[in-house]
């Protein structure tokens, strides 16, 4: 059951330049899981729409969620000023999330599942790594950053074999996440990925016969599947409008790469 309700800020930290880590106590946490997102509202009536932000973590007691986001505009700049005890309105829980059962089957035991995160696509992979490890799946994480201003890496190490790529070569493999996969000869049963569109396109090609689950983003308005603002072209007829345009907010944001035309 989706709802809009007030959450209470537990803490906020800066993880890297422009990257914030916000922990919010919210009833939405009880049903939140990896790959889903929430709509976060500002208290400024000129900035009305909810900002879709992926869930980076759900607390073990299911009472709070963790959002790791990049300040990219006026809305996220407002969020970066939130402090312990502040109230923040949230719409959620939104989106389909990752199907961990299916991923477990496809991870095929020994090779495991390969998690690929690029930039601000990294945070949602952390909750996924945690959930998959808890489900007994072998997890390999490859995270790609611009430079040595990395974030969340130590936490990935708790749940997975972790590799790093950086565009400038200052940490890990010089290049992108796929360069790191090739350099380290990483084998895998299936892929889960979130990151910029060019990265997801490359992963779709790279996956070949293997399944890649990719998490997409798009400008959104309602977040609940009503406005049809955030669509992606699909290879098959979509079930809502029957026009090969699926709604990222509700049919996704996680899609099998083979289902979408990027």
């Amino acid at each position: 059951m989706k709802s809009k309700s007030k959450g209470k800020v537990i803490s906020q930290k800066i993880l890297a330049p422009g990257i914030y880590d916000l922990e919010i106590e919210t009833t939405l946490a009880s049903s939140a899981h990896a790959g889903q997102f929430v709509g976060v509202f500002t208290d400024d009536a000129s900035l009305l729409l909810p900002r879709p932000i992926s869930i980076c973590g759900v607390s073990d007691d299911k009472k709070s969620i963790r959002l790791v986001y990049r300040v990219a505009g006026k809305g996220t700049d407002k969020f970066s000023r939130l402090k312990e005890g502040d109230e923040v309105s949230l719409l959620g829980v939104l989106g389909n999330g990752y199907d961990t059962e299916k991923i477990k089957q496809l991870s095929n035991g020994t090779p495991g599942v390969l998690l690929l995160g690029g930039g601000i696509g990294i945070p949602p992979m952390l909750e996924l790594a945690k959930e998959l490890k808890a489900a007994g799946v072998k997890v390999i994480s490859v995270m790609g950053y611009r430079d040595d201003k990395t974030f969340l890496l130590d936490e990935f190490k708790k749940y997975s074999d972790t590799y790093v790529a950086s565009e400038d070569g200052s940490v890990g493999t010089k290049g992108n996440v796929l360069d790191a996969v090739r350099e380290n000869n990483i084998d895998f049963g299936c892929i889960c990925a979130c990151g910029p569109l060019p990265m997801l396109k490359a992963i779709k090609t790279f996956a070949g016969e293997k399944t890649a689950f990719i998490s997409l983003e798009e400008r959104m308005a309602c977040g609940v599947g009503a406005c049809l603002g955030c669509v992606v072209k699909t290879t098959a007829v979509d079930h809502h409008s029957h026009v090969n345009n699926a709604r990222i907010c509700t049919d996704g944001p996680v899609f099998e790469a083979s289902e979408v035309d990027l």
């Binding site: 009305l48 729409l49 798009e218 603002g229 409008s241």
Partner: peptide, 19 residues
């Protein structure tokens, strides 16, 4: 059935939105 327009289809503006 109509497929609609390419994305981005929505954006926020001061006190409202464009679609």
């Amino acid at each position: 059935p109509w497929p609609g327009n390419p994305t981005p289809r929505v954006c926020e503006v001061y006190g409202g939105m464009l679609n």
